[in-house]
């Protein structure tokens, strides 16, 4: 294959091999090879970046501006760090409505205020009509560890417990619903939210918090596979414990999509020492964005990611590959 395909950016296994073959090998250094959501630099500093190209720009439950702030805030948080300063870069297509930019910026300000971060540097480029699609935003951010570098994707051990901070697949299905014109009552809404306040409280459990990961592109399934591979363990989840909204479930069965593959923008997967599982769950449930938090599984030594179904059977969790495409039949 000599051209980049949409599947290379879909967040699944195709993107993983693309990134490691093209980028990681060449850029390789001790910080990059941590392979975490954010790099841990000397002086307990955490640094990350993310680009936002969501279509539609204004989606049910949020917009590209809120997403651009929350995405980077959350990536810093997933290292157990307090996000402090962000950059914001805009690539804007000629002809894009100024009013829309104002709305996006207002939304960024609201999200930044909520998360308690400041946007301290930025850049703006305007490109010719058709050289970009509307607006693309890049944000980068730095933060400082709350304590020590407790949370790492490599820390999972058999016996640890897997917790999700709330309902699965809300963002991915809201955006897909907007694109496909799906109308649900109650409506499908994105969960886009900053999780740093929840993480700050979780980190009081110190090294009992083994792994924090936000299941964005590729969804919960991809995060579970990444944990299994980087921690060299297996994971078993329980279907009857997975929190999923009824409307998301219905839309998934209509479109033939697995909710474990859908992106989340306001949820985290947390792996904790089993003795602290209920304490961690309690902390999450007390948070504004964690009231549906649930223990969904446990780490084992199988090397596989499996699910106990509600039918009393057990199977492999399907790992997402590339683009999410609705089925035909």
């Amino acid at each position: 294959m000599d051209k980049v395909l949409m599947s290379h950016g879909g967040g699944g296994s195709m993107m993983q091999s693309f990134i490691s073959e093209i980028f990681i090998e060449k850029f390789n250094n001790e910080y990059l090879s941590q392979m975490e959501d954010a790099a841990l630099l000397p002086g307990k500093t955490v640094f990350t970046t993310d680009s936002f190209v969501v279509k539609p720009i204004f989606f049910s439950g949020g917009d590209i501006g809120r997403l651009a702030i929350c995405g980077t805030v959350n990536d810093i948080s997933m290292r157990g760090a307090k996000p402090l300063f962000l950059s914001a870069s805009f690539i804007i297509e000629e002809g894009f409505p100024i009013d829309d930019i104002k709305k996006i910026v207002d939304s960024m300000v609201d999200a930044a205020n909520e998360a308690g971060v400041q946007i301290v540097t930025g850049d703006t480029k305007v490109v010719e009509k058709n050289s970009a699609d509307g607006i693309f935003i890049n944000t980068a951010g730095i933060g400082i560890l709350y304590d020590e570098a407790y949370a790492s994707i490599k820390n999972g051990k058999p016996g640890d417990v897997v917790i999700i901070s709330g309902t699965i697949g809300d963002h991915g299905m809201a955006v897909m619903g907007d694109r496909e014109g799906l109308d649900f009552d109650p409506p499908l809404l994105s969960d886009v939210a900053p999780l740093n306040k929840m993480v700050e409280k979780l980190m009081t459990l110190k090294d009992a918090v083994k792994i924090l990961r936000d299941p964005t592109r590729g969804g919960v399934a991809e995060v579970l596979y990444e944990i299994a591979s980087m921690s060299n363990v297996g994971i078993k989840i329980y279907e009857d414990k997975l929190p999923v909204k009824m409307n998301v479930k219905s839309a998934c069965s209509m479109l033939g999509i697995d909710y474990l593959h859908l992106a989340n923008e306001g949820k985290l997967v947390c792996v904790v020492d089993k003795d602290y599982a209920y304490k961690a769950l309690e902390i999450m449930k007390e948070d504004k964005y964690g009231k549906d938090a649930a223990i969904i599984g446990e780490i084992d030594s199988s090397g596989l990611v499996t699910i106990d179904t509600i039918y009393g059977t057990n199977r492999i969790v399907d790992r997402p590959i590339g683009e999410l495409l609705p089925r035909i039949c």
Binding site: T309, Y311, T313, N314, R315, D318
Partner: peptide, 9 residues
Amino acid sequence: ISKYGLRQI
């Protein structure tokens, strides 16, 4: 059939 693991039943 595969997703529900029905062959196991």
